[in-house]
Design a protein around this nucleic acid. Structure first.
Lengths: 146, 146
DNA sequence: TGCATTAAAGATATTTTTGTCCTTAATTGT
DNA sequence: ACAATTAAGGACAAAAATATCTTTAATGCA
């Protein structure tokens, strides 16, 4: 469904949100361990998210990644679009370039319904809500250690 | 959503179904042109579908691909599972290996709803139905020529 | 100022997916 | 039997996605 990059991105942002207290910034080290993703690849993805203003970063001692007030209120769809683009929500289910209402592919309508469902869910779900769920121990991002 | 291979597979099977008359067999040549997919890659995919009994084939003069009685009644999900596997319907939305009801990822329930929607649609949609729609000109698989 | 720390950026490597080509095997018609 | 045709299968190539490594730039602290 989502690319590996996008999965890591979502996991990272949720984790950052869950650890967000004013002023606290998380290092790549901490983030990649928390979400069990490859360190350097995680760094690349955080770079992209930062460029797309999905999150904020600061270099140097005591630097790291964090969400500012506005970023804390972003929705899942903002992350997905920043990493995987809008194709998932606009592209044809069978990969046809010319697929449209007037020249629909055989699964056009049925696929559109699914896609709209997915889009709606991603638009309605906030990062904050998922971060809290993680913080409360109601969900996990990595194997629980004994 | 689906891999390129899977998109080609679905397009190919729908086309074969749409041209299915008793005894008629379609060549790779005809199929790949009808669905605007690379010839040799299409051949590979048809091989896999044939091995998985999604369609039938015959070598030699007047050979080609066709759907037998039973295969004509298959559902979309049969093609998707043969090519992309069941991961789309069973895997975690965030790619976590250990995600489950007892250790759910943050989007577990919301994602499951979407996934079940998709699965239901694929289980309910028959190849035959899509083939007829194509045959009737109510849908297309390639750019219409003037 | 200089050093330690941390993210950004660029270069490279590996793996997977997608795509192509060539040889082999099966089938049919002559 | 033989030639023509068509799918099957194996080998190879190219492109894209994923992953790693190294250098550079920014920041804070002594």
């Amino acid at each position: 469904m989502f690319s590996k990059s996008c999965e890591y991105a979502i996991r990272a942002v949720i984790y950052i949100s869950s650890e967000s207290k004013t002023g606290r910034k998380l290092s790549i080290q901490e983030i990649h361990e928390a979400i069990e993703a490859p360190e350097h690849f995680t760094a690349k993805i955080l770079q992209i998210l930062s460029r797309n203003r999905i999150l904020s970063s600061q270099k140097g001692v005591h630097g790291g990644f964090y969400l500012d007030k506005i970023q804390g209120e972003l929705k899942l769809i903002d992350i997905v679009e920043a990493i995987d683009g809008k194709t998932l929500f606009t592209g044809c289910g069978l990969g046809l370039k010319q697929c449209s209402e007037t020249e629909p592919c055989p699964i056009h309508d049925k696929f559109k319904a699914i896609r709209n469902n997915l889009k709606k869910m991603l638009e309605e779900t906030t990062i904050e809500e998922l971060g809290k769920k993680l913080k409360n121990g109601k969900s996990v991002l990595k194997t629980l250690q004994e």
